[in-house]
């Protein structure tokens, strides 16, 4: 099984990289670009075959290492 994890900054957390990208899109002439927020994407190969157990395992990984929940949210998709 493979876990696909998206980590995004919580609302209200300053994202200077997103801001820089937003500015660059403007310089390239893309009109109508609103706020840009940058995040991270991870793919984790798992030996676990049980969906529920895998989800628990990946959730623990996110809480303990992959995301810093002070500033980040995470979203898990199993495939």
């Amino acid at each position: 099984m493979k876990a696909k994890i998206k980590v995004t900054l919580k609302t209200g957390v300053l994202d200077p990289q997103g801001k820089a990208i937003e500015g660059a899109l403007g310089h390239l002439g893309f009109d109508g670009v609103g706020e840009v927020r940058q995040g991270k994407y991870f793919e984790v190969e798992l030996a676990e075959t049980d969906h529920a157990k895998a989800k628990e395992q990946v959730k623990a990984m996110c809480e303990k290492l992959i995301a810093n929940t002070v500033i980040e949210n995470y979203d898990i998709e199993l495939a």
Binding site: L14, P16, Q17, N68, V70, I71
Partner: peptide
Amino acid sequence: TEAGLLPGVLVRNKDL
């Protein structure tokens, strides 16, 4: 701080 010995987090400098 990442180890949880202090609260909060250190992020990218405001002006990058």
